[in-house]
Design a protein around this nucleic acid. Structure first.
Lengths: 186, 186
DNA sequence: GGCCCCATGTAATGGGTTACATGATTGC
DNA sequence: GCAATCATGTAACCCATTACATGGGGCC
């Protein structure tokens, strides 16, 4: 039930399906992603339900675009979603289920597994740190005096940073535990 | 692709679909859940693919049970899944997408939203702390000298605790920011 | 008698991914 | 000429949720 509401959130200003996909990849991809094959039909349905209107645009370069914009009814629907409180679905952490069965492979492989996890999240962290650095240098209001929309975005960034840091610490502590045991065995 | 492998992991010792559902709810539910309607067909398929065998059990009380146990081929498949490295799918955090659009509702409602989040994760944390406390008091080997299987389980518990603590801190810092702004406006 | 727990399943629906199909423009 | 990017879509498939269906046993 989230995708239609996310789309409504994004089309406060007119946007095409392609534009929306860009936004997913550049901004939201740490906690959400959707493919074009899912976005196009979902936008069509919003229009059919009277939650969005279409406006054609013929840019100087490139093919024609369908720009979707939310209607007042769409805005009401978006607010209702937010006002009904946080949607707390059980997350599916594939890699954690793997950790749960990690005793099924030899100790050296377990270390490899955690090293790989560690690398991945280190990379994610450095990306987020970069995002924050740029934002800070480009907007003097960062972090305490941002306008509401930016503040909401910043909240998501703050959680991303905190969670990834926690995961990295966890990787390191697990690696330490695994290495201690591995050496004792030799 | 994870569910079949998770089931293989769980049926090292013979288990019924119903038993597995219990395990999900009691142990794995912080990072995975599956319904019986998904488990039964998935187990059937494992048997058809030669990854598990069925053995009937007629307990003294209650109806007959189908006990599934993994075959050597099943074990190989499980190990292959673990050895191919961590499966890092983009998580879908519904509540974070809501935070991203939180400026669409009035400040008082935003505070309500975060308060509700805060409560939920406080509850989750106290459950996990309880789990850890019981484990510590019932096994003198906790936390450093656990056998491999328990160590793997403990790794997942450690991440759960660390992540939930990070989320709670984040909730509190966002609430602080929101309250400051809210008061200035009055 | 009614409710909850044990135990197994199917059917319908919804959400998400991958593959396929089309066509214009930009840059090398 | 070829690859990449812009732009829109459909079809097939897989995964997950909800609803439906059945039946025995224990407890109040």
């Amino acid at each position: 039930m989230s995708l239609p509401n996310i789309l409504l959130g994004l089309i406060k200003e007119p946007k095409s399906g392609y534009d929306i996909k860009q936004t997913f990849e550049q901004v939201l991809h740490y906690f959400w992603n959707s493919d074009l094959a899912q976005i196009y039909p979902a936008l069509k349905k919003l229009e059919q339900d009277g939650l969005a209107t279409i406006q054609m645009a013929e840019p100087d370069k490139g093919p024609a675009k369908k720009l979707y914009k939310r209607t007042p009814k769409g805005t009401r629907q978006l607010r209702a979603w937010l006002q009904q409180g946080p949607q707390l679905n059980t997350e599916r952490l594939h890699y954690l289920t793997q950790v749960f069965f990690l005793d099924e492979i030899p100790p050296a492989e377990r270390i490899k597994f955690f090293t790989s996890l560690h690398q991945y999240f280190k990379q994610q962290l450095s990306e987020l740190i970069e995002v924050e650095k740029n934002w800070r240098s480009q907007d003097s209001r960062y972090p305490d005096k941002l306008p509401d929309k930016d503040q909401a975005t910043q909240f998501t960034l703050r959680l991303g940073l905190a969670k990834i840091k926690a995961i990295i610490d966890w990787c390191e502590s697990c690696l330490q535990t695994l290495r201690n045991k591995h050496q004792q065995a030799n």
